[in-house]
Design a protein around this nucleic acid. Structure first.
Lengths: 315, 315
DNA sequence: GAACAGATATAACTATATTGTATATCTCGA
DNA sequence: TCGAGATATACAATATAGTTATATCTGTTC
């Protein structure tokens, strides 16, 4: 196995054609044909099926492609380590967030890029996890923060945060950050939540089961703004992360209290595609996001628990 | 950059000598000298310092070595994917655990290996995190479960579990799994804990600060068995994970209750060395441990919250 | 159905890269 | 000081990769 063979695999997989890959790489097509054949012989596996107009990866070929792209990522990391790239990164990156996360991270992330890599063109995309997953797979975004997509197709995800969810009520509800509410106390209360296809709803329903109560879901609304408004006007209570409620609490429009026994939480992960090499720009973005999240949690601006690797990160 | 150069880098780094590496690899020493030199020229970096009797990695060389070992790991994964190795793994592996974790995982882990890879020689090593870290770095163990070593030197860690800690009392203490105890209620109680260098102690003290109380540490003992005995004989209460207490509770010797507001938890991670390629045997062990932990948490045998990647794992 | 275009695979040859051999040079230990 | 162990360089030998030529196949168009 040689690096040139893995590079050829990657190019041919992307272009679907030895001839196009030859044009791209600047090497004669028969040389690429031979490289692929020798790789297939060494591994004793068919990487591509051939047809009259090109070639397509087999299932096994696709699996091997993922590892090949990781090899390329490690090689890029070797080069970057060797050169200690301090020159500002350039190029364009698309980063996806759930809307509430975008509210928290956008400004500090933009500030960090402006400070260290001003020539980078950022595209910040707010959408729900299902859409973000699609766009990651399609290559329309490079990296995304997602709520725990356990059944996600091939992604490489790093846990970021366990985010606490809070009970949100009107200002005269007596809810306070200083006094936790046992989940059982929600029995019989009018609760407003997003619809069943929303991950937050699933988490809250699991907590209700665990607490041994049935929730009275008075109204379903997928928009946090709508839920907030309804709560403000006394139509019931809701359960949301604290981050979109900060300003409302500070302005006396809403009140919030932690829930316990059980405490509803959800996991946020940072996800990259597994079938494309991850650029230095993308890795910088991921590291910067992780740093900002850590800072927010440590300053208790974002209530939750940091999750992370013991792995030392290069500065 | 070529794979042969990276392999040479790895061998020379390990043996400290081109001549020894030449013997090992079966290629003439001048060829290896030139490979290293060409790699250094391409990267514009010194990988080794030379002295009269061999050569030693520079700091930069060490960083690059880590990436090179990951390249080798990916290549091994490519070969394994290609061949769909179902043949039983062979060889020897050392796995480290904190003692209480060893109690939970040893039997099912041994059973899993016996069932799928009976020719593997397991060495299960119980020790505290500090020792396990040392042994991982020294190559004396291949993989370890650790309590969150955030300041650990270069390891590759994957979060496994947030483990809940419980209040442990004598059987007549009225403690029950059904009724959570607010942390504040520990104010004024006689508490028995491990010493300050024990990670659990740090977590509990942080919780006390958060609850706004001061803990009365009547006795310090690092042995869980000692703590249990002291509690049984009415010398106070302790705070431990539930797993070492299961049998004592079932036998009516001790009682336990969840703590809340805040709930003390600690993070377990699965750690591999970053400067050596991770063998398939080691990866199988890691995956098997993760599966067993997941099973225990799902059956509520091990109270806590699973942490994991969204990444699809090959079966 | 035939012709043509686009594609892959193979053979043979050429060019380039890598390895081996010989040996110079250096450092360290006895 | 000498010898052993080590690395570095020059040159020759060998192996590998790329190019050219061309056979073969498939799909599209007329």
């Amino acid at each position: 196995m040689e690096l040139s063979q893995l590079r050829t695999l990657i190019h041919v997989a992307e272009l679907g054609s030895l001839s196009k890959a030859a044009d791209r790489i600047g090497i004669a097509q028969p040389a690429l044909s031979r490289q692929i054949r020798m790789l297939e012989e060494e591994l004793s596996v068919r990487l591509f099926t051939r047809h009259g107009r090109g070639m397509v990866l087999t299932d096994k070929g696709r699996e091997i492609l993922e590892h090949a792209t990781r090899v390329m990522t490690e090689l890029e990391e070797i080069r970057a380590t060797a050169s200690d790239l301090d020159a500002p990164l350039r190029g364009r990156i698309s980063i996806g967030f759930p809307p509430t996360v975008a509210d928290i991270l956008s400004l500090p992330l933009v500030a960090a890029f402006r400070r260290t890599h001003p020539q980078v063109e950022l595209r910040l995309v707010g959408a729900y996890t299902g859409h973000l997953l699609d766009w990651l797979h399609r290559g329309e975004i490079d990296v995304a923060i997602l709520y725990d997509p356990n059944s996600a197709r091939s992604l490489r995800s790093e846990p970021l945060l366990l985010e606490n969810l809070f009970l949100i009520g009107p200002p005269d509800s007596g809810l306070s950050g200083e006094r936790s509410i046992p989940f059982k106390d929600l029995d019989g209360k009018r609760i407003l939540l997003p619809s069943t296809r929303h991950g937050l709803r699933t988490i809250v329903e699991q907590c209700a089961v665990e607490a041994g109560i049935a929730l009275h879901i008075a109204i379903e609304a997928d928009s946090y703004a709508t839920l907030k408004d309804l709560v403000r006007h006394g139509h019931g209570w809701t359960i949301l992360p604290l981050s979109p409620i900060h300003d409302d609490i500070a302005a006396g429009r809403l009140a919030a209290a932690p829930l316990i026994d059980p405490a509803p939480v959800r996991q946020l992960v940072l996800s990259y595609p597994a079938d494309r090499p991850v650029s230095r720009l993308t890795r910088f973005a991921g590291e910067t996001i992780a740093d900002i999240v850590a800072d927010h949690v440590e300053r208790k601006v974002w209530p939750g628990r940091l999750l992370g690797r013991g792995q030392v990160r290069t500065p």
